[in-house]
Design a protein around this nucleic acid. Structure first.
Lengths: 220, 220
DNA sequence: CAATTTTTTTAAACGTTGTTAAAATTTTAA
DNA sequence: TTAAAATTTTAACAACGTTTAAAAAAATTG
């Protein structure tokens, strides 16, 4: 792994290197997203990017390193979106969370599909590690449910843990189907929100329940 | 692809062939389930099964054929379980459906994990084809929801289509997490049933709603 | 039971892939 | 411009999936 993110001085060389690095990665993402990770051949990638194979090794590294770089970038980009749980009613918070992610995905669908595929491959979303992405995301969802219970919107007949897991699961399922190319971002939004609202509705107080069902009907 | 499923006469030769075919496939499933499809090397597989590589080609075929055979077998086994939607209350029907599958998976976890991984690889679960596994499964779920509406258990504020999609999604998500090795079959059952009951509860008439929540609490 | 035919297994090779070592080239700085 | 540093390339390696042709085994036939 070369691993030289930012050179101290920006010579013409380092600038060109950075440029080509990005070019190579861009082609890599495009191939992975459209044809899968197995379809990424280093010789083909080199040809597309107008370089030779060992140049890729020099600039980025091997196949594992390409994957690692794509994942690292995904994690960085997600972190920006992740921590800010906006204020407001629960359903609006979840809606905003999902919309923020969809907007992010829309900026470069190929990239994000590729990144999630790569992440899956390398166990990025494993559920066991308490410090992993899964655990952190689940915790956020769960605590939002707890807030909703305190606010009296959810009755608490279902524990916040179960509700959180269920809601996060709905989003993950929709996202996975999108990554797999089963449907587009609009459907991802519709599916994810339907799932979230439906799950909430199961334990909602009457007025909130009414609001949620209206939201589901309004979708699409 | 050799593709000679049942010889007309059972010579010692054909019996031995069938035996070794099964032995090779068994090792293949074991490797795929524990280390992933990429970890399956034909030379290694041949060594494990006590044969040489071209023998695998003679008996089964290449890597694609191994995958195809595993998938074909999965589809056959699933078909047996699939069509029989038992009678009774909706939630019992769903519970039985899930339990039947879990019991099936429990007979050979390695096998079924491998088969689902292989199926995913080859687009077996694509959602577009109206005659595919996805469409057929979804239709069964949806019509069960429609029945529940007719029986007055579901109020119909959510369409049977949306409800069916949601319920089937819950099961798929739990199954995928199990296939990925995130949790065991017991948790798969708990997760899937929680999702199904919770989804139903969102549109359930009061008495049914009560029953569903009690079932959720009783899980685990 | 023995010779012949058929089938199966094997040894050896081919093309493609990821990867790396050393040669050739380019860029930088004196 | 020229010497030094870094980068790109040429060329090769090992591992993989796959196939061909020869050897071995089994089944058939007299």
């Amino acid at each position: 792994m070369p691993e030289q993110p930012a050179p101290l001085v920006e010579t013409t060389r380092s600038v060109n290197m950075a440029k080509r690095r990005l070019l190579i990665l861009s082609h890599a993402r495009s191939v992975i997203a459209s044809e899968g990770f197995d379809a990424l051949k280093l010789r083909d990638l080199a040809h597309r990017a107008g370089v030779t194979v060992p140049t890729i090794y020099n600039l980025i590294g091997g196949k594992t390193d390409i994957l690692a770089l794509i994942i690292e970038d995904l994690v960085t980009r997600l972190k920006v979106v992740h921590e800010r749980l906006g204020a407001g009613e629960v359903e609006t918070v979840f809606e905003a969370q999902i919309d923020t992610r969809i907007e992010l995905f829309a900026t470069d669908e190929d990239y994000y599909k590729a990144a999630y595929i790569a992440g899956d491959r390398s166990g990025l979303f494993e559920q066991r590690s308490p410090s992993g992405i899964y655990a952190r995301s689940l915790q956020l969802t769960t605590s939002a449910c707890r807030e909703a219970q305190k606010a009296g919107l959810l009755l608490g007949q279902v524990t916040a843990e179960k509700m959180g897991q269920q809601i996060y699961g709905c989003y993950r399922q929709a996202r996975q189907d999108w990554v797999n190319g089963y449907f587009d971002l609009n459907t991802l939004r519709e599916q994810a929100l339907t799932g979230v609202f439906l799950s909430l509705a199961a334990d909602a107080e009457p007025e909130f329940h009414k609001r949620l069902l209206a939201k589901i009907k309004a979708l699409k």
